[in-house]
Amino acid sequence: MSRNRLDRRFAELAKEGRAAFVAYIMAGDPNAATAQAILDGLPAAGADVIELGLPFSDPMAEGPTIQRAAQRALKAGMTVAGTLAMVAQFRRRDADTPIVLMGYLNPILSKGYERFAAEAHLAGVDGLIMVDCPPEEADPLADALEAHDISLVRLATPTTDDKRLPAVVRRASGFVYYVSVAGVTGVKLADADTVAPAVARVKAASGLPVAVGFGIRTPEKAAEVARVADGVVVGSALVDEIAGGLDEISGAPNENVTERVLSLAAALAKAVRSARVRTA
């Protein structure tokens, strides 16, 4: 059933003639309870798909914002099991919004692919993005996930040329994540003019919706990308709101941190929704 959650959501949005707003937060940042409150509030704020970061000690593709989020989450005790518990909790209130976990391979390998896939399916996870698992290394993980109806979402980047693209989208399902810039998360800005042809290329090769992420920080930029892609991922900007809502000395979250994040999410969602005039 869960794979259908992603397929269903993208199909509905295609019918509406608009892109998906994909909101990213880190599981357990700044602590389990606050992260849960933010996660639970995201659908009402307008998130169509949620990416939930799995904290890792050595996040090699992340800029400073997400690195610090991972450190906060780990310090507050977040684990793979804790992340799955957050998803299970979310599913009690929301049966429809797809959740994709995003992180690095070692914690999943450590748990065991098969065991992870089974537990993630039970919790209500729909997809997995593994930053450091290119297609050449992905088959064992993809096998385990497929058996439990979870999509292994593939990443395409500006360095993925036409020769390589078929290998990248082989066995892809759910959607393809197009990394708009060569770089780490949250630093360089995406450029809609160069993103548009890349999205078209990836879409043609994969036959799947293409969501664009890395370097989208503002409602304006989100709207720009929403005109040319099937999904717009915003992560670092939302996580910055969490960081900005922490007490400078104790690091404890202020009362309004959830509100701050959800209000930026709502502005981003609105921008994505109004970016395209209905065509279908």
């Binding site: 391979l105 930053v131 450091d132 698992c133 290119p134 593939r154 990443l155 980047t157 360095t159 993925t160």
Partner: peptide, 20 residues
């Protein structure tokens, strides 16, 4: 050919780096 010594080694890098 896949860069493995038995089960070890391989190429676990982000897609951006894979072509490089």
């Amino acid at each position: 050919a896949t860069g493995r010594f038995g089960d070890y080694g391989g190429r676990y890098v982000a897609e951006t780096l894979m072509p490089l």
